[in-house]
Amino acid sequence: MSIHDNKVVIIGSGFVGASIAYATLIRGLCTELVMVDTNREKAVGEVMDLSHGLPFVPPVEIRTGGYEECAGAEVIVITAGANQEPAQSRLDLVQKNSKILHSILEGIEQYEKDAILLIVTNPVDVLTTLASQHSELRPERVIGSGTILDTARFRYILSQRCGISANSIHAYVIGEHGDSGVPIFSSASIAGSPLSLLCANSTSPCNQNWQEEVTAQVRRAAYEIINRKGATYYGIGLSCAYIIQSILRDEHKVLTVSSYLNDQYGSLGTAISVPCVLGKGGINRRLQVSMNPIEKEMFIQSAEKLKEAVNILN
Rank of each mutant, 00 (worst) to 15 (best):
L29M: 14
C30S: 09
E32P: 07
M35A: 03
T38Q: 03
N39P: 03
N39T: 06
E41F: 14
M48W: 14
L50N: 01
S51G: 07
H52D: 02
L54G: 04
L54N: 02
P58M: 05
P58C: 06
P58G: 06
T64H: 11
E68L: 12
C70W: 11
C70T: 05
E74G: 13
T79H: 01
A80C: 08
N83D: 11
Q84A: 07
E85D: 04
A87V: 11
S89T: 15
L91C: 02
D92Y: 01
V94F: 03
Q95A: 06
K96I: 15
K99I: 13
H102L: 15
S103I: 15
L105F: 14
G107R: 11
Y111V: 10
K113W: 02
D114V: 14
I119P: 08
V120F: 04
V124M: 10
D125S: 02
L127T: 09
T128E: 07
L130Y: 09
Q133R: 13
H134N: 08
E140P: 10
R141S: 06
R141H: 04
G144Y: 06
S145R: 11
G146R: 08
I148P: 01
D150Y: 12
D150G: 08
D150M: 12
R153H: 10
F154V: 02
R155T: 02
L158N: 01
S159H: 03
Q160V: 07
Q160E: 10
Q160I: 07
S165W: 11
